[in-house]
């Protein structure tokens, strides 16, 4: 069973930017003879190899695991975060999704809260700060009770897992017309808030994480649901509904002092 292989010639319009405060522009690069079974990042590897041998500066892009789980790779391809295929990261996108002769526009995530470091690499520390504000269950190592002492209804465990599948890549922010981080924050909140272990701190966590999110310069959710449509892990905006509800209740309880 032979796998059909053909090769593509492409024109790439790649965003080049020397640093956070430098102006950026689109540069044109020709990508010749790209095998259609190569991944998108492997296509960029080939292009970079060509740039290096010609004495140029290769395109900087973030990547690591190249199997869709670390959440490092982050590029907008033809206006689409992670490109045209649903439910995959850029590293899992393969060139068979493109046609010979295509022009491909490649840009970084664009959001005030994600400043460009160089070319296609952005600084996502805003996500770190949101998680540090409350994305945990306070449990000291060694003090945990027997694992089966608290049964967790399967549906709750599954829903928590579905939210915890978030890989923190930031495609939701990149896709949102408002550059809002609500899907990310909501996914992190739902992961913990849905579990019995996460309940005692749920209000504190929700208030702290939403407030920290607000401080980072992200926009606000206006229910376009582009985030859900571009999430490589298909996280549902149901998590945002839960966050809205939890924040509403937590604010009310905080105001009333209960």
């Amino acid at each position: 069973m032979a796998v059909s292989q053909s090769s593509l010639n492409l024109t790439l319009k790649i965003w080049r930017q020397a640093g956070p405060d430098q102006p950026g522009r689109f540069d044109t690069h020709e990508a010749k003879g790209i095998p259609d079974s190569a991944s998108f990042l492997e296509m960029l590897d080939i292009v970079n190899e060509g740039i290096i041998t010609k004495g140029g500066d290769p395109v900087v892009f973030d990547h690591d695991c190249r199997e869709g789980i670390c959440g490092t790779c982050s590029m907008v391809i033809n206006g689409m975060p992670h490109g045209p295929k649903r439910g995959v990261t850029t590293c899992q996108l393969h060139m068979r999704s493109f046609r010979n002769g295509d022009t491909i526009w490649i840009e970084p995530w664009r959001a005030k809260a994600f400043p460009v470091i160089r070319d296609l690499a952005v600084d996502r520390n805003a996500f770190e700060r949101i998680q540090q504000a409350g994305g945990y269950i306070t449990v000291r190592t060694g003090s945990a009770p027997e694992a089966n002492s608290v049964p967790v209804p399967k549906d709750d465990a599954d829903a928590s897992f579905a939210a915890a599948a978030c890989i923190g890549c930031g495609a939701c922010v990149a896709a949102c017309p408002n550059a809002s981080a609500m899907l990310f924050t909501a996914a992190k909140l739902s992961h913990f808030n849905l579990l019995p272990q996460g309940k005692p701190e749920a209000d504190k966590r929700t208030l702290a994480m939403v407030r920290t999110m607000d401080e980072q310069g992200f926009g606000n959710c206006t229910n376009h649901y582009e985030c859900e449509a571009y999430c490589p892990k298909l996280i549902s905006v149901e998590t945002i509904r839960q966050m809205n509800r939890d924040y509403r209740n937590a604010s009310a309880r905080e105001t009333a002092g209960v």
Partner: peptide, 26 residues
């Protein structure tokens, strides 16, 4: 909210990739 949303993304994308948002929502 709209002003915050506008400042949250200064540089627009080269192409529009809208996948799900309705015209009404935009």
């Amino acid at each position: 909210l709209t002003r915050e949303n506008r400042t949250a993304r200064k540089q627009k994308y080269a192409l529009d990739g809208t996948r799900k948002a309705t015209k009404a929502s935009v």
